[in-house]
Design a protein around this nucleic acid. Structure first.
Lengths: 333, 333
DNA sequence: AACCGGGGTGTTATCGTCAACACACCGAGT
DNA sequence: ACTCGGTGTGTTGACGATAACACCCCGGTT
């Protein structure tokens, strides 16, 4: 049995296809009786709107592209899930495209352009967004965790403040100063976390030791342990690197938290079961995703043109310190 | 500037739109000179095919739906990434829909049906697939990690064999028997892993202690530690639960691996940095995803009708034991 | 000379939906 | 009686791509 079209429904209800369209789109210009008859016909025939045809006619697909560098980080995959949920609630679908470092974002946007998505959300690692200014054409865009800039709508966690809180917490615990295991140099989130760490140290008048740099992965955290062997407190830029650090310190015989305190960032679900359970900074990925989707849909549907409200518009969501055993005060109270 | 259509390209190249279509679709019935002229016009104008129009005319969207219960498990998010990569290589796009336990799969498939996807891949937790036999209509379907059944194409890791290898490894290490921290009762993968564990015990004539059941999350693993306090070897159904178990054992003062050996499943990237580094069973998610996508595209494009080769067709990929410190032999060699 | 076959190309109609316009009807105001 | 505004509905014509068919031009048969 072939697809049921508006014409079929129209015939069954004894009206024109246009009236069916009006019912589907909730136009007020339909007699309640007629509307009821059409709706009855729709359920009777099992009518489903043909999105491709709708897209062809209206130019809008009710589809959002999600550009993601990798899903290997817990943060990204949680964002993806949250974005899906938020989009589904608005009757939008998500198509995922990957943009790796070597492929660049151009092919990703090319695919999205083909698919005529109504807009795109870019996750993370967006420092190199500058490259693509021209490429995206006029596609509405919301970037997560990127440098706020003119003509760019961004949504981000307050990485700097979270990092500041983590560092202050470690200082309050009695550490002379706090070492930092930073993320990749080209990551905005990593830069922000580093900035917050520096600010907290400056605020307390503590010495700044140049950070060790990792790649977000736990292996790089383990590798950093020797370089950080004389630290009494370390703020790691994410939980995975913190985990590696815990491992590295264990191998070196450095006891956590008795000899060295460790704090991470993200609050991955497993952090509570690390050994010892990890103090970390929790991001509200659900809220972040909901805001990103809401902003994008506003842009895509909005009559408020992009010249107006969208200029360099940045939204920042708070992060929350979660204290666990890995940062029990170094010198007992 | 509005969208560039085939007609525009055709005008620019001095041919008809149909000829442009033939060039785009690689028809052999085009003079090489004409083809060159058309291709030149396409790049000159920046032509991009309009998928919605193509979909309307051809009835196919070059889009694959991915139905996923959650992305909280590492396995699922790695599968998602791998599926995206495999699909992109074939010029297909992925749209992700979630089907939670309460929402059921019906709305998910409804969304996919609207979107006119060419087929769908269902990830995991598919025991309740039976519910949807009628719902999917004739949409081509590949299910990952589900009970093979007639009229169902499945792709799966050899969970049972991986579990068997893990259990045999623990027995070889000197354990009297091996306890099992199982996954949720409604999960196919969990059932298979349990089956492999039982088989290995039976094979060795070891006693079977009824498994403790978790929910894949690390917290459930930690909670299971007390119930498993007298074990000398535990096979956990995934790495996250194994991590929780390591935490729980540490709290109980049970030393791993000296007093109790632990093995997980999945080989998440962090497993190597758990304390102690976790022995586990590695799944090849990339291969799994590539096979799933390949099978689905065959189904969707295949002239080989579904009555033929697709009947109860199951593909099984090997898993590999990765030995680390958490299972160092209980009784020294 | 008439015919054939096939490569290369154009024409036409169509997929399902919706914007724009047309129209028919009705009660209210002049 | 006659316009008027509003309401409910139908008609027409795109949107962009392509399947099906029609056509022309050629060299090679009969």
């Amino acid at each position: 049995m072939p697809r049921v079209s508006m014409a079929d429904v129209a015939a069954h209800a004894g009206v024109s296809a246009q009236t069916v369209s009006r019912v589907v789109n909730g136009s007020p210009r339909v007699d309640p009786q007629t509307r009821a008859r059409v709706e009855e016909a729709m359920t009777a025939l099992g009518y489903r709107i043909h999105r491709a045809a709708q897209a062809l006619r209206t130019g809008r697909t009710r589809t959002i592209g999600l550009v993601v560098s990798t899903l290997a980080t817990v943060g990204n995959s949680r964002m993806l899930q949250a974005v899906c949920a938020a989009a589904e609630a608005r009757d939008y679908a998500i198509v995922v495209v990957t943009a790796t470092a070597d492929s660049g974002i151009r092919p990703a946007f090319s695919r999205l352009h083909d698919r005529a998505v109504d807009g795109a959300i870019v996750l993370n690692e967006a420092t190199r967004l500058v490259q693509m200014a021209g490429t995206t054409g006029d596609m509405p865009l919301v970037v997560v965790d990127a440098e706020p800039a003119a003509h760019l709508v961004t949504v981000q966690t307050d990485h700097a403040d979270g990092a500041r809180a983590a560092t202050a917490h470690l200082l309050a615990g009695g550490a002379e100063t706090v070492h930092h295991l930073a993320g990749p140099a080209d990551s905005f989130a990593a830069a922000e976390r580093e900035r917050g760490w520096r600010a907290a140290l400056a605020n307390a008048g503590a010495a700044v030791i140049e950070p060790v740099r990792g790649d977000w992965g736990s292996r790089s955290g383990a590798a950093a342990a020797t370089a950080l062997a004389d630290a009494t407190a370390v703020f790691a830029a994410n939980d995975q690197m913190a985990l590696g650090l815990l491992h590295g310190f264990a191998d070196l015989g450095r006891r956590v938290p008795d000899e060295v305190a460790v704090v991470g960032f993200d609050d991955v679900p497993e952090a509570v079961d690390y050994l010892p359970p990890l103090t970390t900074v929790r991001q509200d990925f659900d809220a972040l995703a909901a805001r990103a989707v809401a902003r994008l849909i506003d842009l895509a549907e909005g009559t408020a043109a992009r010249a107006g409200a969208s200029d360099g518009d940045a939204e920042v969501l708070a992060a929350e310190l979660v204290v666990r055993e890995s940062s029990r005060p170094v010198r007992a109270v």
